[in-house]
C-alpha cells in the first residue's frame, strides 16, 4: 500500500462528481441545521403559538410548505427536524466508531485470549436482531434523544470493530512494524506511530457510511413512536403526519419534505463515504 498524499487525495476526490454533489448537499443541510434559529422562529413549532394559523393549508406565500393538522408551519418543522436528524446521526456515529475502533485495535493488537474474548463479544452483539433490541431498549430507557443515540451506538459498533481489527492485523504483519520492534519500540509506540495512522482512513470512511444508517435508524424509531416527544425530527414529522391522516387527505406537503430530506441526506452521506472509502482503502482502489 502506498500512502495517499493530501494533494493526490484532493485530486481524486474532485474528479468524483457524485462525491462532490454529495458534499454540496451535506454542506447545504449542515448550514440549514446550524442556521435554523435564524431562518425560522422556533415559536412556529408550538401548536399554541400556531392557533391562529389555518390547518392543512397547502403551500403558499405565507407558508412555503403549508401547515399541518394543528396549523404549524411544515417548513419550520423541516428546518428544525434537520437539526435532530443530523445531530443524532453524528453523535451515534461518533460513539459507534469510538467503541468499534477501540475494541478493534485492542483485539487486533493484543491478540491471543484478549482478541478471542473481544471477538466473541462482538459476534454476540452482531447477531442480536437490531430492531427488537432497539424497541425494547427505547421502551425501557424511556423516550429521549440520548437514549436513541445510545441504542444506535450499542447495536452498530460490531461491524466497525471487525473492520478495524482486520486492518490492524494486516498492519501488524508489515515489515516496518517488525523494524520498529527491532528498534526497541514499545507496543504503545507501534500503535501510535504505525497502526493508528494506517487504520484512521478506514475508520473515517466507515464513519461517513455509518452516519446515514444512524439517521435512518433514528427515523425508524421516531416513526415507531419511540423518538423524543419534545424534539421535532424528520422521523417524528413523518409519524405525526401518518397519525393525523395526511396520506389519506392527500396533504403531500406534510410528509414529503421530511421524507425527501432523509433520502437526500442519506444519499449524500453515502456518495461521500463511498468515495472516501474508494480513495483511502487500497483494496478497493486497485480495481
Amino acid at each position: 500500500m502506498t500512502a495517499v498524499s493530501r494533494a493526490d487525495f484532493l485530486r481524486r476526490f474532485r474528479r468524483d462528481r457524485l462525491a462532490m454533489f454529495g458534499l454540496a448537499v451535506l454542506i447545504l443541510f449542515a448550514l440549514m441545521a446550524i442556521l435554523a434559529p435564524v431562518l425560522v422562529d422556533d415559536d412556529a413549532l408550538s401548536a399554541v403559538a400556531s392557533l391562529d394559523n389555518p390547518t392543512w393549508a397547502s403551500p403558499s406565500g405565507d407558508f412555503l410548505l403549508g401547515t399541518d393538522h394543528l396549523g404549524r408551519s411544515v417548513a419550520a418543522q423541516f428546518v428544525y427536524g434537520s437539526r435532530v436528524s443530523l445531530f443524532v446521526g453524528l453523535m451515534a456515529t461518533i460513539f459507534t466508531i469510538a467503541i468499534g475502533s477501540i475494541v478493534g485495535v485492542v483485539a487486533g493488537f493484543a491478540g491471543k485470549w484478549v482478541d478471542a474474548a473481544l471477538m466473541r463479544l462482538t459476534d454476540w452483539f452482531l447477531v442480536i436482531p437490531f430492531l427488537p433490541l432497539a424497541i425494547v431498549l427505547a421502551a425501557v430507557l424511556g423516550r429521549g434523544i440520548w437514549n436513541i443515540i445510545f441504542v444506535i451506538s450499542i447495536t452498530s459498533w460490531p461491524s466497525t470493530a471487525r473492520l478495524v481489527r482486520a486492518q490492524v492485523l494486516t498492519v501488524k504483519e508489515r515489515l516496518y512494524v517488525d523494524r520498529a520492534r527491532a528498534l526497541g519500540a514499545s507496543q504503545l509506540h507501534v500503535v501510535r506511530r504505525h497502526v493508528l495512522p494506517n487504520v484512521a482512513p478506514l475508520i473515517l470512511a466507515s464513519a461517513t457510511l455509518a452516519v446515514p444508517i444512524s439517521i435512518l435508524t433514528e427515523t425508524t424509531l421516531a416513526f415507531l413512536g419511540l423518538g423524543d416527544p419534545t424534539q421535532a425530527s424528520w422521523g417524528k414529522t413523518l409519524e405525526e403526519a401518518f397519525q393525523a391522516g395526511a396520506i389519506s387527505r392527500g396533504a403531500w406537503w406534510y410528509y414529503l419534505p421530511a421524507g425527501l430530506g432523509i433520502v437526500a441526506v442519506v444519499l449524500a452521506f453515502t456518495l461521500f463515504g463511498r468515495a472516501l472509502e474508494e480513495i483511502l482503502d487500497p483494496r478497493l482502489r486497485e480495481r
Binding site: 500500500m1 508489515r174 516496518y176 517488525d178 523494524r179 527491532a182 528498534l183 526497541g184 495512522p197 494506517n198
Partner: peptide, 24 residues
C-alpha cells in the same frame, strides 16, 4: 533490558521497501 539491547544491535532488512512505513 531488551530495549537497551535493541539500541546496541541494529537490524538491516532484506526488503527496504517494506521496512519503511510508506506514510513516514
Amino acid at each position: 533490558e531488551l530495549r537497551a539491547l535493541r539500541r546496541r544491535a541494529q537490524m538491516i532488512f532484506q526488503d527496504p521497501t517494506g521496512a519503511l512505513n510508506p506514510r513516514h
